[in-house]
Design a protein around this nucleic acid. Sequence first.
DNA 1: CAGTGGTCTAGACCACAGG
DNA 2: CTGTGGTCTAGACCACTGG
Lengths: 254, 254
Amino acid sequence: MGTTQLETVPEPKYWHLKTVLSEALDSDFSVGEVLPNERELAARFGVARATLRQALEQLELEGRLLRRRGVGTTVAPPRVGVAVGTEQHTWPGAPSDVWEPVDCFLKVPPAAVADTLGTDRADEVHTVRRLRTSDGQPVAAELLYIPASSVPGLTAVDAPSGAARARAVLRELQRLELQGRQSAVELGSARADDARELDRLPGAPVLVVTTRFLSGGRTAALAVATYRADTCRLTFSDSGAVEIHHEAAERQVS
Amino acid sequence: MGTTQLETVPEPKYWHLKTVLSEALDSDFSVGEVLPNERELAARFGVARATLRQALEQLELEGRLLRRRGVGTTVAPPRVGVAVGTEQHTWPGAPSDVWEPVDCFLKVPPAAVADTLGTDRADEVHTVRRLRTSDGQPVAAELLYIPASSVPGLTAVDAPSGAARARAVLRELQRLELQGRQSAVELGSARADDARELDRLPGAPVLVVTTRFLSGGRTAALAVATYRADTCRLTFSDSGAVEIHHEAAERQVS
DNA sequence: CAGTGGTCTAGACCACAGG
DNA sequence: CTGTGGTCTAGACCACTGG
């Protein structure tokens, strides 16, 4: 006989494993429950640990699992919906803002940032560090770049750095007229500093949201926010309604 | 000597490798150029192939590399910006639409979809399959779910399925008054069928954009679009301006 | 066909959390 | 300290692309 090929191609083991585990998660586990450890799971399914890990990795990427070194693997709650972008035509730091200023300092930004802002690459700009939390969990870390020209009324003596200074900078920013914002979302991996704030390992997948704040025909501020890709769903709407979904599942299609 | 620990913690090898490779890509390679194969790279850096692959995986995730089985690893062009969502207050299928209808059939949707649409879980809905390309490359695959009640004028005899039917359904949809849309972006992994259309392997990272089209106080249609996460940057703006960025770099911050 | 990336194994050691 | 997930190795075989 020989070449009688019943199935065209064999499904990769880790792919099949992922499916099986996914169904088991739906039926036999509840949110927060800890799974057996990787060595036992691998043995139970008769695969090498590396293969089992490949399946777990995918499930974590899809927000189904939460793995912590030294602790274990637990079933993750549904992703939290975080509103981003267009529903609020406001500057960062507006009263309705959900971000918490952490720090502020004058710094020479990366070249790409300087180019977008239209400043000289050697110029320092106000760099505000902010953190966003949801349900007590950190979901995003942000760097906000604000050229000195966007906050002319700022007194240098106010405070050299720190959260107080950050608030002062944001307060000054409100005085400008906001014409609009442009945002982009892309996949990235967490830098070491962001990873620390987000309670993840460096390299963890994140959704990078880059936002340009426009005023007077130029980019008055630039925000680069990194959201935890495993726990967040970024929401935006155009109908003026604010509406933050927070409810639930909508598991991906079969 | 002994425990003199110069650095607090050793950086993982693959992380360091990724940095080195990233810099090499910036300085010594140009877009489209093929890298040495994995076995040679691993040998050159003195690591196991699996470790080298971990670094390549991250770089591919960040859109820096493109790997194709049987071909090789090449330097990827900058991510293409694709406009999504709020700049066009239009139904899918409107004249300005960038999507290409591929097929259409009546099908019982996943339970979560039925729940969002407010239809019975056993009811069939029009399911339109669409494809989005940019520069000749496929960037996204979409499933559009449209309850029969949203397209009452549709004649059943028109065509049983196919692209023609898809266009007919979308044409009917334009008759409704669109009140707004709500979208969400999250990270996912490509299903087998999407992966095929996007020229990727199953499980490849994708940005899943879920959009509810609102009319008459209910969800008149639901779109689930999966974008290639490695090659796409999703853009949206709120200032009425359409503006599709397409230019360039803005490499992530240092 | 030869060469590429993709999958898989069986082991080892490390870093971290918690008792 | 024990147990967890994270890193790393050296090898094997498979699936695909292209000449």
